[in-house]
């Protein structure tokens, strides 16, 4: 199962629309979740409308959260999406086998069986989550909280029975015009990795859409991202399941 989790605090302003990019991700079997970080004030109507639409196009969920609740929100979205993705698959099966399209339509005993299967799959399926972090100027004071939320997510995922891995990217990538940069390659454990997110101020644009496209690319052909600024590469990028 493949997920992208976008953490941002504003609107995209360069390149392809992030809604289009999210739709492309979903078409390739990757669910896109979005967390809008708000501290002092809000994202503005346009910003929150955008993150909602990105998630809808990406088949995922969106939430607004203060930095304080970031860890909880990130975990809740990841977990809910795992269950939801399995549910969608189960729904299709239900339609074929039982003629009803929803779990709610099943009598309690059958529902119990179906949910048992959903829970079991949710705990054991292989999971890959790519985190895409908005590192534009306004996000700078929130980087520590974001990093902490990522560590916490990794801790929760480690507790699963199925293999879980995360990768981390930030955007904008660099002054050389890269849309996005890899901070951590697929890893099951982020303990001992210090400060993987950049604390430097990036240039002003927010290329959310192009960055999303890059991460989708990465899921497809991870090798092109190798040799970036990171030595955490351990070649664990095989065998992900849909």
């Amino acid at each position: 199962m493949k997920q992208i989790l976008l953490i941002t605090d504003g609107c995209s302003n360069v390149g392809v629309s992030p809604v289009v990019a999210a739709a492309q991700a979903f078409a390739e079997g990757i669910t896109v979740n979005v967390v809008g970080v708000l501290d002092q004030g809000d994202l503005g109507e346009f910003g929150s409308a955008e993150i909602e639409e990105i998630a809808r196009a990406g088949g995922g969920l969106s939430r607004l959260a203060h930095t304080r609740q970031l860890s909880q929100t990130v975990q809740m979205l990841t977990r809910k999406t795992v269950v939801q993705t399995i549910q969608q698959a189960v729904h299709r099966e239900l339609k074929q086998v039982l003629g009803t399209s929803s779990i709610e339509g099943l009598p309690p005993e059958k529902r119990s069986e179906v949910v048992r299967v959903i829970d079991e799959l949710g705990e054991t399926t292989k999971l890959k989550v790519a985190l895409l972090i908005d590192a534009s100027a306004s996000m700078k004071p929130k980087m520590q909280a974001v990093e902490e939320a990522i560590r916490d997510l990794s801790l929760s995922l480690q507790a699963r029975q199925g293999r879980s891995e995360i990768a981390v990217f930030h955007f904008p990538g660099s002054a050389h015009g890269d849309d996005c940069m890899m901070d951590l390659n697929w890893t099951a454990d982020v303990r001992g990795v210090t400060q993987f997110l950049p604390r430097l101020q990036m240039r002003g644009t927010t290329p959310t859409g192009p960055a999303l496209m890059h991460v989708v690319d990465f899921f497809r052909t991870p090798s092109q991202f190798l040799g970036n600024n990171n030595d955490e590469t351990d070649g664990m990028m095989s065998d992900y399941v849909v």
């Binding site: 909880q72 507790a159 029975q161």
Partner: peptide
């Protein structure tokens, strides 16, 4: 036992205090 804890509250959580995993 052996699965990931389904629901927890941060300050009571072993993982939050760097004291171990979230495996039940």
């Amino acid at each position: 036992f052996g699965k990931s804890v389904r629901q927890f509250t941060e300050i009571y959580d072993r993982g939050y205090w760097n004291a171990g995993s979230r495996t039940a």
